[in-house]
């Protein structure tokens, strides 16, 4: 087996996996955990701790991790794509969607 970057899929029903290493765009990622060993090519650079789609997710569909719904896709997400604030929002948190994609800094308070 390759020693390249890996991502961990917690539950068989999950449509995302969490990166255990940084992956550059075009890198083949080994998905371990609940998934039957599979490989997915990262469509863009994805950092350690962030999520990659392991299945196509339609706009408005549930994003699932740990076997539970962690958010709703705000646009269609293809396998290999980084799943984060730009394409997934909370079902409860009204501030979800106002945060900077890379730093997480808020854009909705008095300091702008």
């Amino acid at each position: 087996m390759s020693t390249g970057p890996t991502a961990f899929q917690v539950h068989a029903a999950d449509n995302v996996a969490t990166l255990l290493d940084h992956a550059d765009a075009g890198t083949a990622l080994r998905i371990i955990g609940a998934a039957q060993e599979k490989e997915i090519t990262a469509q863009e650079a994805i950092a350690l701790g962030h999520k990659i789609a392991v299945a196509p997710i339609a706009e408005g569909a549930e994003v699932t991790k740990f076997g539970v719904v962690i958010g709703i896709a705000t646009r269609a997400i293809a396998p290999g794509v980084w799943v984060h604030l730009h394409n997934c929002r909370s079902q409860l948190d009204e501030r979800s969607g106002s945060f900077d994609l890379h730093t997480g800094a808020p854009g909705d308070n008095a300091h702008g």
Binding site: T18, A47, G49, H50, V69, I70, G71, L85
Partner: peptide, 28 residues
């Protein structure tokens, strides 16, 4: 409480570290 104060227990550093929503952070 969370709905009333309109603040969930998730912060910029969590987002930067790959957590996208309070639902995701909660399960962890």
């Amino acid at each position: 409480y969370c709905k009333a104060v309109r603040q969930y227990s998730v912060a910029p550093g969590n987002f930067a570290g790959g957590l996208t929503t309070i639902e995701e952070k909660s399960m962890g």
